[in-house]
Amino acid sequence: MDYVLAFLVGGTICAIGQLLMDLTPLTPAHVLVLFVCSGAILSGLGIYEKIVELGGAGATIPLPGFGHTLTSGVIQEIEAKGFWGIFSGVLENASVGVVAAVVVGLFISLLFNPKG
């Protein structure tokens, strides 16, 4: 069942992205920014947590999930450390993804050439 829900929720989020790309003048880069910010805000309002409970990876793998990861880290750190948690929390949970992307990106560029 969790696979079906991941498929449906993840697919729906992507379909919304496609609608934005095809029906508005937004470029893919604009849609990505919009999605990560929406995820961060919905997370702050406590809504994204509900979507994650429903969709599992279907909610965490798409980019709004990254925004949720950023915000959830901030709130967690504020609870633990107070004011400075606003700063230290941003990458608290997201650092695995960011560091993985940088390191993997660099190594892949060492190993491969663009095919064009």
Binding site: L8, G11, C14, G17, L19, D22, G58, T60, I61, P62
Partner: peptide, 20 residues
């Protein structure tokens, strides 16, 4: 386009669920 996005996006997330 929306169907393709739904399908491929859904499949990537399903794979993500398996990894999770």
């Amino acid at each position: 386009n929306v169907l393709a996005a739904f399908l491929v996006g859904g499949l990537i997330c399903t794979l993500g669920q398996a990894v999770l």
